[in-house]
């Protein structure tokens, strides 16, 4: 309800920063992500060698050299977890970016072109009928093994979701009066899309991208757990969990470390996406307080 038609001058970035300052959930998630990113970048500084096998200390408890203990080959679990962050983040962010770029481009096209839209929608329907992880496994086994393969294999099933979302948002934005107004003053083509249609889709796209990022992190863990894609010696959380499975009765914490890290990371990314989408909407930014 409009209490008053007030006219307050404001600075677009100010509220965002203030909002983030106020919002403990966002701050916590950001901090957690920053810590993980720093760990991933400075892994060699923070942790020891994740590949060094030390059969003498197999499954040993935490000690000075390996604060989270050692796994069934005597490798440093902490070092492997830190290096595993690299894979998770790289896959997560790359998939999010790929999904956004392709999903938005195709989605906008589908939203603006009647016939093209119909064709694209049937294709996405077909792709979405197959479980994403199956599709990813199929792609991963067709292509050569490696990080890039994993990224592509996970991104492809994610794109149709983004396309669908973007298309439906574009259909809504297109009929808004300000877009009609822009057409009536002669704005057309890319300028119309860039200035008037795309900005309106950014909120939902951002949320979807974070979900894509989160599900890509999980998917990459699943692929590693199943032994598809990245080679087993490259440290990854999924691989660590697969390794820990055999020794679960003896040393259950080995499963716990990568598992908890994975859950926290996915949770942080998801919360961030939810909250950011509220904050970035200029109309909501003044009202939301969470």
């Amino acid at each position: 309800m409009a209490i008053i038609e007030s006219a307050v001058p404001s600075h677009p970035v100010g509220p965002l920063l203030r909002h983030m300052g106020r919002n403990r959930a966002i701050t916590l998630c950001c901090l957690f992500l920053i810590v993980l990113v720093l760990l991933a970048i400075f892994a060699p500084v923070v942790a020891g060698d994740p590949l060094k096998i030390d059969p003498a200390h197999r499954l040993s408890s935490p000690e000075a050299g390996a604060i989270w203990g050692r796994d069934h080959l005597g490798r440093d679990v902490f070092a492997r977890a830190v290096y595993g962050t690299r894979v998770s983040l790289l896959v997560g962010f790359s998939v999010a970016i790929l999904t956004t770029v392709f999903g938005v481009a195709i989605g906008v096209y589908a939203g603006l072109s009647r016939i093209g839209g119909a064709i694209v929608m049937r294709l996405t329907d077909a792709m979405m009928a197959i479980p994403a992880i199956l599709l990813a496994i199929a792609f991963a086994s067709i292509l050569n093994a490696g990080l890039l393969t994993v990224i592509i294999a996970i991104a492809i099933p994610e794109i149709p979701r983004m396309v669908r979302l973007v298309r439906s948002v574009v259909l809504g934005v297109r009929s808004q009066p300000h877009v009609t107004a822009a057409i009536s003053i002669g704005t057309s083509g890319l300028a119309l899309i860039w200035r008037h249609i795309l900005p309106g889709t950014m909120g939902p796209v951002l949320v979807q991208a974070t979900y894509a990022c989160a599900s890509a992190i999980i998917a990459s863990a699943v692929l590693s757990f199943l032994g598809v894609g990245i080679s087993p010696e490259v440290p990854s959380w999924g691989g660590m969990m697969a390794d820990a499975r055999s020794t679960f009765r003896v040393q259950p914490v080995l499963m716990l470390y990568p598992g908890v890290l994975l859950s926290l990371l996915v949770l942080a990314v998801n919360i961030l996406g939810d909250r950011l989408s509220d904050t970035l909407d200029p109309r909501k930014s003044r009202r939301t307080s969470l």
Binding site: H178, T180, I185
Partner: peptide, 13 residues
């Protein structure tokens, strides 16, 4: 040229 009904919604937010 056109002037629209909803003065707020017809401007790009």
């Amino acid at each position: 040229q056109m002037v629209f009904q909803d003065p707020y919604a017809s401007l790009n937010p």
